[in-house]
Amino acid sequence: MNAPVLPPAVSPVAARGPAVAFERVSLLLGRTQILAGIDLSIEAGTVHAIVGPNGGGKSSLVRCLLGQAPHGGTVRIDWPGAPGRIGYVPQALEFDRGLPMTVMDFLSALVTQRPAFLPPKAPVRAAILAALAEVGMEGKAGRRMGALSGGERQRVMLAQGLMPAPDLLVLDEPMAALDEAGALIFETLVGALAARGTTVVWIEHDLAAVRRLADRVTGLSRGVLFDGVPEAELTPERVLALFSHRAGGAA
């Protein structure tokens, strides 16, 4: 967390993201089998989308990847060299809407250790402003977090995922509240990250966006239903089967 914060597009590092391997990963919460027998490999430097019905275990798979769930089996992150940086863009934030906290306060609380009630140091401030500019939020650093629209909040979440520049970026439904302009910015960003060799693991419900951007796609509903390149895998029959699949009646 103390690492220097680099504005991502300004410093195109020759970073290459890791490969990720899930081997027989299962997750049982209470009596509910959330995930069962997941074998999945994510190649280094690819944009890998995960699609599937609500309750199909997409977010849980990501939590296993991030080491935040008591799963069975193994999740291996194979870094090309020393372990790099993981960025994570969660689906939702828990905070009180009335909290007097600006966008700048919020981001500096996440990316530095200097207490966020003090003004951030100049380089950190510059990095935050650069990341905000990258998601099309320039000039909004002083807005209150609680006063942002859902789409704007999602852009801020995206901005924090870019600081420090990630080698593995994990996105949980990042486009859910984005408007058209936001979606365009998001697609440009993912493209830029992919060009730099960052591995992107991306949970998404918008299949058209997946077709446009993802190198590979996995259909997930408790288990892996399909896995491959989007043009081949996302056939109407497969999609119908995926979204009408009931995860063992447990979901």
């Binding site: 939590r63 991030l66 919020f106 996440l110 966020a116």
Partner: peptide, 23 residues
């Protein structure tokens, strides 16, 4: 309080995100 202020805040926003960031 001052030293851990940001980390307390981050953990209250989203525990998973905070953990990924080393909190």
């Amino acid at each position: 309080t001052a030293f851990f202020f940001n980390r307390f805040m981050a953990a209250s926003f989203n525990p998973t995100l905070a953990s990924v960031r080393g909190v």
